[in-house]
């Protein structure tokens, strides 16, 4: 018998609809977005820097192309994305290998979950990432 049930899977909307839900979802979304950005940059980076194999002229030429203020800002975004992705990666490593989530406990209301348990870790990640990103910004734009 063919099912007359109506499909109700959320689809991609279900990835980003963090709305009223927890911070771990935002970290998940941000980790994904920065990851995609970093991969796109990395592939481009391989092509740009490989010009050094041809010689100094082509290297200087490539550096000329990517030296504008727009590229500097883009580079800074990549730096900030890397900082977040790296620090959150450490957090995810600790969580997904089962080190930060704790041991099973007796569920007594109000429930304490692994998400709540790792909230401080997430806050630390965000704070350190923010500080390093600001520091990097000073280095990129002010001290240069």
């Amino acid at each position: 018998m063919a099912s007359r049930a109506h499909p109700n899977r959320l689809g991609i909307k279900g990835w980003v609809a963090g709305g009223r839900w927890g911070f771990a979802r935002y970290m998940y979304t941000l980790h994904r977005l920065t990851g995609l950005g970093l991969l796109a940059y990395f592939v481009m980076h391989i092509f740009v820097t490989s010009t050094r194999a041809i010689g100094p002229e082509s290297w200087e030429q490539a550096m000329e192309i990517v030296s504008g203020p727009l590229f500097a800002f883009g580079e800074y975004l990549v730096f900030a994305a890397f900082v977040f992705h790296a620090l959150n990666g450490i957090r995810l490593g600790a969580i997904e290998l089962g080190f930060a989530v704790g041991v099973p406990i007796e569920p007594v209301y109000p429930y304490e979950t692994s998400v709540g348990r790792t909230q401080r870790l997430a806050k630390a990640v965000l704070m350190i990432a923010f500080v390093v990103a600001v520091w990097g910004g000073l280095d990129f734009f002010i001290w240069k």
Binding site: W21, G22, A24, R25, Y28, H31, R32, L92, I95, E96, L97, G98, F99, V101, G102, P104, P107, V108, Y109, Y111, E112, T113, S114, V115
Partner: peptide, 30 residues
């Protein structure tokens, strides 16, 4: 396929914390 978005544990009405179970499972398997 789990990336610790943590929603399952946030909504669980019985405090089962499936996210914890899944991370501990990854540890065992690895």
């Amino acid at each position: 396929r789990c990336h610790f978005a943590g929603e399952c544990s946030q909504v669980c009405p019985k405090g089962v914390d499936p996210a914890k179970a899944i991370q501990l499972m990854k540890r065992e398997l690895v």
